[in-house]
Design a protein around this nucleic acid. Structure first.
Lengths: 359, 359
DNA sequence: CTGAAAGCGCTTACAG
DNA sequence: CTGAAAGCGCTTACAG
C-alpha cells in the first residue's frame, strides 16, 4: 500500500496517483504542465499533490527523462565581484523555473581542465552551463562542453562564437559614455589606465575612451595612457606615473574599479583633493566602490540581468519544442548604467562654470 | 549490444561490465571503492573504466542509493564577503570528494522560507546543507531541514544547537587580541563601534574588546563605544561622533570592515592622518580592506577552512559506517589570524617610543 | 483525454 | 570474492 502522508516518508508519484484515482502518467502530465488533461482532473490531482506535499525528485526525473533541472555556473576567480551578482541573478531565476544552480570553481590554466569539465557534465548531466570570463574564452572548456553536447551560454566572452549563445554589455559604448561625461564636466586632460591585453574588456574599454576623446577633438596623448592589470597596485603605480607628469591630468578613467581605487589611494596619499584636483572614474561598480571616500563614479554592468537572461536561454533550449534560434538572437547585449558618485566633478579650474551650470 | 566508446554516447555501468567480463555489481563495487574485490579484478575494471571514460551518473546513483553527492549551500546576503570564500572552499572540497555544490540564495525573512527550503531539499535530496548566517539561526529553516531529515552544518551560528554540527571561529578571542594589539602599540583611548544587536558576532566581538580593555586596567569609557549596523555609513556616522569629542580616541576598532572603512573615509575627509593621528582596525578581512589607503588592519576569518570542514562533516555523516559524533566534537572552532596592515601604528604622541621598540 | 508497459542507470539485499 | 534479481521514481513511446 502506498504512503498517504506518513511522517518522515516523502510522497511519490505513485502515492499521488492512487490517492487521486488516476494513473501515474496523468500525474506526470499535471506536474509537467502538459496540455490535454481534463481541467477537473488536473485540479483534483493538484489538490492531492498539495495535500501530500508531493515534490517530484530530480534524480528520478533526470534518470528517466531528458532534463536534469540543473544548471551549472563555471567561474575562475571567486574574488571577482562579477561572480557574486551573476550567481545571485542565476539562482533566483533558477528557483522561479524549478531549476537549481550548481557552481564549480575552476583554475583557468589547470592542465586537466578539460577533463574536470567533462567529468562534471557527465556526472551531473546539467541542462546547461553558464561560463564566465575567462573560462568562456578557454578553448579547452568549450571543446569539452561541445563533446558532451552540453548547451552553454557565454557571459561577456572576448568574441562571440558562431552558434554559441552569449550575453554581454557594450563595454566600448559604456567607456565612451564615461569619457564623454568627464569631457562634459570640462576635463580635457583625461588619462586612461588600461587593463591587461589578454582580457577582452581592456581593449574594448580603451577603444571607447579613444573614440570619445577623438570625437570631441581632444585626441589621445600617449603620455596619459598607462597600462595596468586590473589590480589595485597597478592603479597606484599608474597614478604615481601620471601625477608625476609636469602637466597633470585633471581626470583619470581606470579600466576597472580596483585600479580606480588604486588611483584614489595614491591621490589621497599625495594630498590631492578628489574630485576637485583629480576626478576619478572606474568600471564595474564593485562592492568596494561605495566603501571609499569619495565614493567612486563607475559603470554598472547588468550582471544580475545578464545571468537571468542566460538561465532563460538555457531553459528555452531544453524545451522539447525549442525552435532554432537565429544567429542574431543568439547574442544578447544588455544595457549598462553610469553610476555617478562623488569622485567626479568639474576640474578646479572650471569650478565657476560648473557652479553656473548647477543653478 | 552495449556501447563500447561510441562517440556522443556516454558509457554506462553495463558497458563497463560487459567489456570487463564481470557483473555490474562488481563494477559498482570498484566505483564505490568497496572492499572485497580481487585486486586483479579491480585493476582490470579500472582500466576499462578509463578506456570507456565511464563516469557514473549522479541521478542514477541518487535514485538507487542513499546518497545524492549533492551538498547545498544556503545564504542570504550575496554581497557578504563571507559567502564568496565559503563557497570557494566548499566547491574545492566537494570536487575532491566527488560531490557537487548547489547554491541557493534565500531571503531570511521571506514568509514562505520554510516551504522554499522544504521544496529544495525534497527535490534535490542533498546529502547535506551548509547554512551561513543569518539563515543558520533561523528557526524556520532549521525546522524545515529537520523535518526532511537533511543533515546540516551551521557556520558561525549565534549559538550552538545541541546535536547539530557547527563550525566557527572565536570572535571574542580575536577581538580581544586585536584590542590588545592596539594597547601594545601604546593606545589608551580606544573606541569601539558595535554591530547590530541582532547579530551574534556583535556581542561576541564587543566582549573581546571589553575584556582586553579591562584586563589592561584601561576600563571601558561609554563615550568611546558607538553602535553601528555593520554598514559603511554607520561607520562614517560613528566616526563623526567620536572625532567630535573634546578628547579624541587615538584608535578606533570597528566591529567589521565595512564600518572601519567608514571610519577611514570620515577621517580622510576631516584631514586626519591615518594611522598616526588615528589608528583604525576592522574585522573580516573583506576584499575592500586591501583596496584602500592605508590598507586596513583586520581579522581574517578562516572561511575557506571552515567551509572545507563543513563539507567534511557532511560527507562523514553520509557514510554508512558513520559513527556517532560526540557532542564536543560536533562544534569545531578554527583559528583566526590578525592581519596587520597600514591603518594601525602607535599614536603620534608615542611615536618616539615606537621607534625605540622597532630598533 | 487517459493509461499500461518498458526502461533510464545505478544500489540494495540477498545468495553463493 | 562475485553475481542475479529487484527496485529506486520518474518519463518515454505507444495504444486506445
Amino acid at each position: 500500500m502506498a504512503n498517504f502522508g506518513k511522517a518522515g516518508v516523502a510522497a511519490t508519484i505513485t502515492d499521488v496517483a492512487e490517492q487521486s484515482g488516476v494513473s501515474i502518467k496523468t500525474v506526470s502530465r499535471v506536474i509537467n504542465q502538459e496540455s490535454g488533461v481534463h481541467p477537473a482532473t488536473r485540479e483534483h490531482v493538484l489538490k492531492v499533490v498539495a495535500a501530500l506535499k508531493y515534490r517530484p525528485k530530480l534524480s528520478a526525473r533526470s534518470l528517466a527523462g531528458a532534463r536534469s533541472f540543473l544548471i551549472g555556473l563555471l567561474y575562475y576567480d571567486p574574488s571577482a565581484a562579477f561572480v557574486g551578482d551573476v550567481q545571485q541573478g542565476a539562482t533566483l531565476r533558477c528557483r522561479e523555473a524549478g531549476y537549481h544552480l550548481v557552481v564549480e570553481s575552476l583554475h583557468n590554466d589547470a592542465p586537466d581542465l578539460a577533463q574536470q569539465v567533462a567529468r562534471m557534465v557527465s556526472a551531473l548531466q546539467p541542462d546547461g552551463m553558464i561560463l564566465t570570463p575567462p573560462l568562456c574564452d578557454n578553448p579547452a572548456v568549450l571543446k569539452a562542453l561541445r563533446e558532451n553536447q552540453t548547451p552553454c551560454v557565454l557571459m561577456s566572452p572576448a568574441r562571440d562564437v558562431k552558434g554559441m549563445p552569449s550575453v554581454r554589455m557594450d563595454d566600448t559604448k559604456a567607456a565612451e559614455e564615461m569619457t564623454t561625461l568627464l569631457i562634459g564636466l570640462g576635463h580635457e586632460r583625461i588619462a586612461f589606465i588600461n587593463g591587461p591585453p589578454d582580457q577582452a574588456a581592456s581593449g574594448l574599454r580603451y577603444q571607447g575612451y579613444v573614440r570619445a576623446m577623438q570625437s570631441h577633438g581632444l585626441g589621445v596623448d600617449p603620455a596619459y595612457v598607462c597600462s595596468g592589470d586590473f589590480v589595485f597596485q597597478s592603479g597606484v603605480d599608474a597614478a604615481q606615473l601620471l601625477l608625476g607628469r609636469r602637466v597633470r591630468p585633471t581626470a583619470v578613467f581606470a579600466g576597472n574599479d580596483d585600479m580606480a581605487l588604486g588611483v584614489l589611494a595614491a591621490a589621497t596619499r599625495l594630498g590631492l583633493a578628489v574630485p576637485s584636483q583629480l576626478a576619478i572614474a572606474g568600471f564595474d561598480d564593485s562592492p568596494a566602490a561605495r566603501l571609499v571616500w569619495p565614493a567612486l563614479t563607475t559603470v554598472r554592468q547588468p550582471k544580475n540581468e545578464m545571468a537571468r537572461v542566460a538561465v532563460e536561454m538555457l531553459i528555452a533550449v531544453n524545451r522539447s519544442d525549442a525552435p532554432e534560434v537565429p544567429e542574431d538572437k543568439l547574442h544578447r547585449v544588455l544595457s549598462h548604467e553610469l553610476v555617478v558618485r562623488d569622485s567626479t566633478s568639474s576640474p578646479a579650474s572650471k569650478l565657476g562654470s560648473r557652479a553656473k551650470r548647477a543653478t
